[in-house]
Simulated scan of single mutants.
Amino acid sequence: MEWRKSSRSNASDDGACVEVAFVPEAVAVRDSKNTSGPNLTFPTVSWDAFRADLRGKQA
């Protein structure tokens, strides 16, 4: 998987960030401080609804 860190992450966060990887029909999320640890996987439709909710919009 190709992991991407949030564009809002910066050095002052001490690495406290999440990373995401887009895979067919799903999005995986992991803790950037523990890259060898577990990750959570969400269906793409659920991820899209989550992002829309963060932006204050309905999916």
Rank of each mutant, 00 (worst) to 15 (best):
P24Y: 06
R8Q: 09
A59Q: 12
T44K: 10
M1N: 05
N10S: 10
M1G: 13
S36T: 11
V45S: 13
P38D: 11
T35L: 10
V29T: 04
S12M: 09
R51C: 12
R4P: 00
A11V: 10
R30G: 03
P43V: 02
V45R: 15
P24I: 07
T41F: 00
R8L: 15
D31H: 01
G15I: 03
T41W: 01
A52Y: 13
F42K: 05
V23D: 10
R51T: 14
R30H: 03
T35A: 10
V45P: 04
C17L: 09
W3T: 02
V23L: 15
V45A: 14
N34P: 00
K57N: 13
D53Y: 11
P38G: 05
T44I: 09
R30K: 07
A26T: 09
D31R: 01
A28T: 03
G37S: 12
F22Y: 09
S9L: 06
A52Q: 06
F42C: 05
P24R: 08
V27G: 07
A59M: 04
V23C: 09
E2F: 12
K57I: 11
E25P: 00
M1L: 13
C17I: 09
L54D: 00
G56A: 03
A52V: 11
A11F: 05
T41C: 10
S46Q: 12
E25N: 07
N10I: 04
A26G: 08
W3M: 05
R4F: 02
G56T: 02
P38H: 03
S7A: 07
K33D: 07
F22K: 02
A16K: 02
W47P: 12
T35F: 05
L54S: 01
N10R: 04
V23F: 01
M1K: 11
R8N: 13
W3G: 02
D48A: 13
T44L: 12
F42V: 13
T35H: 13
V20H: 03
A52L: 11
L40C: 08
A26K: 12
G56Q: 03
E19M: 04
V45K: 09
K57T: 09
L54P: 00
D13G: 04
L54E: 02
D14A: 15
E19V: 10
D13A: 15
A52N: 12
L40A: 12
Q58R: 15
E2P: 12
S12L: 07
A49K: 07
R55A: 14
W47L: 14
P38M: 04
D13I: 05
R8E: 10
